[in-house]
């Protein structure tokens, strides 16, 4: 069955001032709930502290990202997303909430390279401030990549992640690859 399950752009990869790669299948769960009231129940499932505003925190085999005051995005193994939804639903029973598997609705990219060119590459296509002070590892920024919605965070100074909707994965990959083309160095960040 596994070879029948495909991410948006399997194996897509571009090299330039930075390397852009589609990361394959990634489990993602959208959880909408009263985050103040349900923090403990959620932590019980994810093992992660409730992230603060725009923060992304690590849990047991998963990451929890703050999306809005009543929305989290939980990143886990693709195969675990269904169970994650079930576990969250069980943990939050009796509480108004919505947990839904959105793994296949998205595409995830790794953008990696030297710190400056990495931030420069992203700054060609997003109006969000890509400086290290404005977007440090541990924070997730929802914004746009030119004409489509996306979320960006840094795993480290030299590696960023980009999430977008699955249908525009090709567009976002092409944008990133174009921005990373050799010869386009800016030297700003």
């Amino acid at each position: 069955m596994s070879d029948l399950v495909k991410s948006a752009l399997p194996g897509a990869r571009a090299e330039g001032s930075v390397t852009v790669e589609e990361m394959g299948l990634q489990g993602m769960v959208t959880l909408r709930a009263d985050l103040l009231a349900s923090g403990a129940a959620i932590a019980g499932v994810t093992g992660a502290e409730m992230p603060g505003i725009r923060a992304i925190s690590a849990g047991q085999g998963c990451h929890v990202a703050w999306m809005s005051p009543d929305e989290l995005l939980i990143l886990c193994d693709h195969g675990r997303a269904g169970a994650m939804v079930a576990d969250l639903t069980a943990a939050l029973s009796g509480q108004h909430h919505l947990a839904v598997n959105v793994s296949d609705a998205r595409a995830l990219f790794r953008v990696a390279g030297p710190a400056g060119p990495l931030r420069d590459t992203l700054a060609k296509i997003t109006p969000a401030d890509m400086s290290a002070e404005a977007l440090a590892p541990g924070e997730i920024r929802r914004t746009r990549l030119q004409q489509v919605a996306a979320a960006i965070w840094f795993e480290s100074a030299t590696e960023a992640r980009v999430i977008c909707f699955r249908s525009v994965a090709r567009y976002v990959f092409d944008l990133l690859a174009m921005s990373a083309k050799p010869g386009g160095a800016v030297g700003y960040h």
């Binding site: 495909k6 060609k124 296509i125 030119q146 004409q147 489509v148 909707f165 699955r166 249908s167 525009v168 994965a169 090709r170 567009y171 092409d174 944008l175 174009m178 921005s179």
Partner: peptide, 16 residues
């Protein structure tokens, strides 16, 4: 226009 020309003039949404 910047990068918005040719294939990436507009985002084309593709189904699976």
């Amino acid at each position: 226009a910047g990068e918005a020309r040719g294939e990436i003039f507009q985002p084309l949404r593709r189904t699976p």
